[in-house]
Amino acid sequence: MLLDDRYGRVATDLRVSLTDRCSLRCSYCMPPEGLPWLPKDEILTDAEVIRLVGIATGLLGVTEVRYTGGEPLLRPGLVEIVRQTPVHTSLTTNAIGLSRLAVPLAEAGLARVNVSLDTLDRDRFVALAHRDRLADTLAGIEAAAAAGLTPVKLNTVLMRGVNEDEAPALLQFALDHGYELRFIEQMPLDAQHGWSRDNMVTATEILESLSGFGLTPDLSTVRGSAPAETWLVGGGPARVGVIASVTRPFCGDCDRTRLTADGQVRNCLFARGESDLRTPMRAGASDAELAALWRTAMWGKLPGHGIDNPAFLQPDRPMSSIGG
C-alpha cells in the first residue's frame, strides 16, 4: 500500500510533531506569552509514536521521517524515538540543547538537522524570539556539525522591516562555516493570524538582495519534490536555497504526510481538516486498520494549498502545533 492521492502524488516523506511546546516565542509563530499547550494525555506516548512511524515506514511506503515540534529537543524520549526509526531520519530544531544531544542523536541514527536561524544579532534575536538564546542556538549548530549531522541546513524567515537586511550576512555566515542556508517565505501559519502577503519578503526580493554573491541556477540536481529551489554561489560548490511556498508553490510535486503530536494526520500543511489515528489506536485498532485510515486521509488531499484563492482560510492550528 502507498499513501497516494487522487492527483497521482505519493507521500513518502513523513513529518512528525513530537510536541507543540517550544523554548522560543518567535513572532511569526506564536505570541510572547505562548499558547495553551495540548493536554498531556492527548499527546502520543513514545510507544505510540514509534508504532505509527513503524506503520508508515513498514506498510505505507514512507522512506524518510523528520521529527519536528514545537521544539522536538524538549521531548524527553527523542533519542530512543530516533533509535527506533528504521528509515532516513532528520530533525527540525532551534538547536537550543543540541550541544548536549547532538552526539547521542547521531549515535541513535539521526542523519542531519535543519536549524531555524533568523538573525545573527543578539538584540534582534531577543526581539524576534523573546528569549536571549542566540549563543545557545549557535553552540547547538556547531555541535551538530561536529557530530556529523550534516549537511547542517539553516532555515531563515525574512520579515519586512525586521531582518530582511541580514540576508547577505546570514549567507556569508553559512558559507564561512560550511552550512547550507535556505530562506523561507513567511507563511500564514502564525497563531495570531496576522500574516499579510504585503508584508512578506518574496523569493524575488530575497534573490535580489543576494545579487552580490554571483548566484546561478543549480542545474546539477533535479528539484523533484524538494521544497527549495537552489542556486550555486560563485559557481559552486556552495549553494543557497529559497523555499517560496507562497509565490512559487510546489504543491503538484508534494510528497509529504504529517502527524501531529496528538495523533492527527494532516494531508497538507494548510489543511483545514484532520484525521484522528490516536482514538482508534487507543481503542485497539490493528496496524492494518490504522494504515487504511491513513490512506483514506491522504486520498482527500486537495490539489494545492490555495493561498492565492480569495476564499483561503488560514488553518486553526499554528505552525507550532502542526509541525514544520
Results as ranks from 00 to 15, higher is better:
184 I>L: 09
158 L>F: 10
185 E>N: 02
169 A>E: 12
152 V>Q: 07
138 L>I: 04
138 L>R: 12
175 L>T: 12
134 L>Q: 14
178 G>F: 05
134 L>M: 06
171 L>H: 08
133 R>I: 00
160 R>C: 01
135 A>V: 06
187 M>L: 05
175 L>H: 06
185 E>S: 06
163 N>D: 09
186 Q>N: 13
131 R>G: 07
151 P>D: 08
167 A>H: 03
162 V>Y: 09
178 G>K: 11
180 E>S: 10
145 A>L: 01
156 T>N: 06
160 R>W: 08
171 L>Y: 07
159 M>S: 03
159 M>R: 14
178 G>Y: 01
186 Q>P: 07
151 P>N: 14
149 L>P: 03
159 M>N: 01
172 Q>N: 11
181 L>D: 10
178 G>R: 15
159 M>A: 10
167 A>F: 12
138 L>P: 15
146 A>D: 05
136 D>P: 05
161 G>H: 01
168 P>F: 07
153 K>H: 09
161 G>V: 00
157 V>S: 03
185 E>K: 01
182 R>A: 01
181 L>Y: 12
146 A>P: 02
142 E>A: 15
159 M>Q: 15
157 V>T: 07
145 A>G: 07
133 R>E: 14
144 A>D: 02
152 V>I: 01
138 L>A: 04
130 H>A: 14
145 A>Q: 06
133 R>F: 12
130 H>C: 12
143 A>T: 07
130 H>G: 01
156 T>E: 09
174 A>Q: 09
132 D>L: 12
163 N>I: 02
153 K>P: 11
167 A>R: 12
161 G>A: 04
182 R>V: 10
129 A>F: 02
169 A>C: 05
143 A>Q: 14
131 R>K: 11
161 G>L: 06
146 A>F: 01
173 F>N: 03
167 A>E: 06
175 L>K: 10
176 D>R: 14
143 A>E: 14
167 A>P: 05
163 N>T: 06
144 A>N: 15
160 R>F: 05
141 I>R: 14
143 A>M: 04
132 D>A: 13
180 E>D: 00
133 R>C: 12
149 L>V: 00
140 G>T: 05
178 G>E: 13
172 Q>L: 15
146 A>T: 10
154 L>E: 06
154 L>H: 12
174 A>D: 05
136 D>I: 02
179 Y>V: 07
134 L>V: 13
135 A>R: 15
147 A>V: 02
182 R>M: 03
160 R>M: 12
157 V>Q: 08
162 V>D: 04
132 D>K: 08
129 A>G: 10
179 Y>Q: 06
183 F>P: 11
163 N>Y: 08
137 T>F: 13
138 L>T: 03
174 A>R: 14
